[in-house]
Design a protein around this nucleic acid. Sequence first.
DNA 1: CCGCCGCCCTGCTTGC
DNA 2: TGCAAGCAGGGCGGCG
Length: 270
Amino acid sequence: MPELPEVETIVRGLRPAIVGRTITHVDIHLKKIAIAPPRIAFARALQGEVFTAVDRRGKYAVARLGSGRALVTSLRMTGRLVVQAPGEPELPGTHIRLSLDDGNRLHFADVRTFGRMRLVEAAETWDADLGIEPLSAGFTPEALIGMLNGRTTPVKAFLLDQRRIAGIGNIYASEALWQARIRPEKPAGALGTPAIRRLHAAIVDVLARAIEMRGSSIDDYVDAEGLQGGFQNVLAVYGRLGQPCSRCGRAIVRTVIAQRGTWWCRGCQR
DNA sequence: CCGCCGCCCTGCTTGC
DNA sequence: TGCAAGCAGGGCGGCG
């Protein structure tokens, strides 16, 4: 499932492929996927637009358009954004296809159809509910201390809450907690300062290493070129039920926290 | 404001 | 072997 590192990898791949390109044609195969402001037709509005930049915010890919509008894509679990050249077969499960003036096509595919592609106005704030970027300068240990203060929710649930920190999903929440040696069920506000400092460092380190390895391909994730990532090969706990912890040797367990599978080590995560 | 829960979907796994 | 039920999960809306 695409989280911050996967979306960052996709965005970096999209940038050279689509910035400067004009959208010549828009095909929508599944209408509910394409969201537009009231009284604006998604396909008609996009036709003729130029991509001016591609950014990431949390788990969202944000394509800036010449008009000042933006095309915001949420991939959820199984969404894919892939650029294909003329002659390449249509990406299976494509719901939206943007044809570009160089002949390439940008496909948005999603077997589970949970993902969305949303056109937003220049003046529209679509990300008001999203929290801090964990790889930004503002995400300091002190900021994390402030955010955790007084919270009773399990620290794992806190990490998944996009209103606090934007971009961490189920894979990297489990991995960061393992690296910081923190028990996922621990109430967020009960962490001591040393533990919070370890957690801060672990979040930044895990996300940065995952970006370096072009993300984790667990189920469907591929980058903008359709290629898999590499971080799934170095995961410490996620999906590793019963396998020995690389730090203490104890078998990895799986519990459910905030309705999400959580993999961790009872031996060294306190 | 905060925390919790059900829903959306389809493909894979499980169990009879 | 075949089939149906169960499960997984990010974001969102509803509820207390």
